[in-house]
Amino acid sequence: MQVPAQFEYERATSVAHAVELLTRYGPDSRLVAGGHSLIPMMKLRIAEPETLIDINDVAELTGIRLDGTELVLGAMARHADLLASPLAVEHFPILVDAERVIADPVVRNRGTVGGSLCQADPSEDLSAAFAAVHAVAVIEGADGRRQVPVREFHVGPYQTVVGDAEILVEIRVPVRPGGGSAYEKVERRVGDWSVAAAGAALWLDPTGVVTDAGIGLTAVGAAQFAAARAEEFLRGVPGSDDAFTEAGRIAAEDCRPVADQRGPVDYKRHLAGELTTRALRRAAARARGQEA
């Protein structure tokens, strides 16, 4: 039987209250959202916070909405909420593609968007999807709010820029016309973490030339979950199959997978390239309105 070490439990009622509790209890306190990464780590005693601050009652952290030209996802939006969100389907199908293959439906009922980003697991799916769509994280602390692009959010494996007495409040994704997006993942079995996965967001002008591209990669050691050189290559060229194949080749070249029980390095590198190409193809079809 796995039993966490002892800790104190507090429940926050608002974002300001959560910050106050984090400040009061100091660096050995931890927020708990869905708890589906943190509680297993506590059961294994990989994490031993002295105080757990529950943010499940903080209503202002929930919900998915459109705010002007930005899609805004509350940190406490559950995976299941995002999967069912008509706004996500309309503006960023990449997020829905990704959610469909994150864990299983019961885990998705509990795990949250914010918890996923803050967990910063190197195989985490939403980090790659948010990197592709150039999302921005909104973080609150005692001194107010600050915005950090998701591509500057991760400091390293399991480490983010969120400070000890700070909380991730929401993720904002700019909605721009002419775009399409998609996510492709290979997993060993349904519900498992990625062997490798790639997300792509593309913006095309009316002649089919790529005006902007975002490529996210997970589980393959890509810096900031992104494939910057492949994106750069795509900007300004026609969105053709050849271009997508070349972008996949560059993305594969730039990633640094490690061998583990999910596969050897060359296989993961191959997947990174192939999945990048497939995600770009589907993103382009969606941008052209040829695919839902």
Binding site: Y9, G35, L52
Partner: peptide, 20 residues
Amino acid sequence: VAWLDETPVKTCTVLAVMAD
């Protein structure tokens, strides 16, 4: 799996105090 409020959850990964 049991329901927490209206939602099925894996109760091995929820603390009893979270159900308070």
